[in-house]
Design a protein around this nucleic acid. Structure first.
Lengths: 189, 189
DNA sequence: ATTGATTTCCTAACAATATTAGGATATAAT
DNA sequence: ATTATATCCTAATATTGTTAGGAAATCAAT
């Protein structure tokens, strides 16, 4: 048997491709092994089991989302940064709906690295919002607020809740603008 | 074999109990049959398969959520109604986290009755928000906005994104108040 | 009440899936 | 070259969803 330089990274990335192509619930170790030209049992050399594969996929999705957010917000400040983040967040979820769904499908608390990855995404919002005030309580509050908006919007959209003929892009854009206006109208200390 | 008056409703409700007790991913037809004192194959008398069971669970969750929202908003108007809805929405998701997760786990577009149930939930928000303006575009816009906030918040909370020591209840309450204030500051036609 | 039709539930079997045990061989380390 | 390690394999198993076909309880109609 010719051996291929297979690594955990490669396994997870191959799984990510399958997930986006056929959907999360149609990912099986059999299909994944076939795509990698190995037998299902051989996957256990690289992963502990399918639960770890799920958590790795969730981690990968969070990392990619974080990268796109960081990229979008680079060199930008305040409102401009918040707008850029919203569109990158929305873009990632729309272009990778299955991967995005995995993020919330895996219970975070079970995996320390997932908690860390989630914290990284949150910290991006935290950084930008800290440009408005130095009060940590308020920064956390607005982070939760904005994160809820972004996650709620893209989740409901991909679930089909917004399939009523009205423009989804315009709604998001308006929501983001309203949120930013709200923020700017506050008189922070 | 003594026959019991088993109906689809009873099967789905039993499944709902299992889901909340052991988690969505631990629901199996074997366990469900055991709880109902029948054999797994007998379940197919009442359901077409596990996919239909999932969609029925999603439908049940949406119905219960709708009932709690309607109950909370009864006799109330505008801001008061919106506040009541938020707390009932949050309450349902927190007390039935697994059932709530099922709502977005099942692809809506595949099941017409699910689309209908989702519409019912949306229509509750629509009704209340139509007390602020008669412009349908704006009503839909704010429905999406508020729905995104509520769903995003409870999803992120149950996924563990808000486990940072700050009060979740206060955040939600403040968010709702900010949203309502925003709405009241608009000069609608 | 008896007959006939329908419904509910069963046993038995099957396919797909995740997983483990144990072994062969390619690769790396000494 | 020898040893150790890592990669991949075959084979077997438990769990799960599902279907086929049949027995018996229930219901409907006479």
């Amino acid at each position: 048997m010719p051996r291929q330089g297979l690594t955990k990274e490669a396994v997870v990335k191959a799984a990510a491709l399958l997930v986006e192509e056929y959907g999360f619930e149609n990912l099986t170790l059999h299909k994944l092994a076939a795509k990698l030209n190995i037998k299902p049992a051989s996957l256990y050399t690289h992963i502990k089991g399918i639960e770890e594969l799920y958590s790795s996929l969730s981690h990968l999705a969070l990392s990619r989302l974080r990268d796109e957010m960081l990229d979008a917000a680079a060199e930008k400040k305040q409102g401009e940064a918040l707008r850029a983040i919203a569109f990158s967040y929305h873009g990632y979820a729309r272009q990778n709906p299955e991967m995005y769904r995995i993020i919330l499908k895996v219970p975070h608390s079970n995996f320390e690295n997932l908690v860390g990855a989630g914290r990284e995404v949150k910290s991006i919002l935290f950084e930008i919002l800290s440009q408005y005030t130095k009060e940590k309580t308020k920064i956390i509050y607005y982070s939760r607020y904005y994160h809820s908006i972004l996650h709620g919007f893209v989740s409901l959209e991909t679930a089909g809740f917004f399939d009523d003929g009205f423009s989804v892009e315009k709604s998001l854009s308006d929501i983001v603008n309203d949120f930013i206006r709200q923020l700017e109208n506050k008189q922070f200390v």
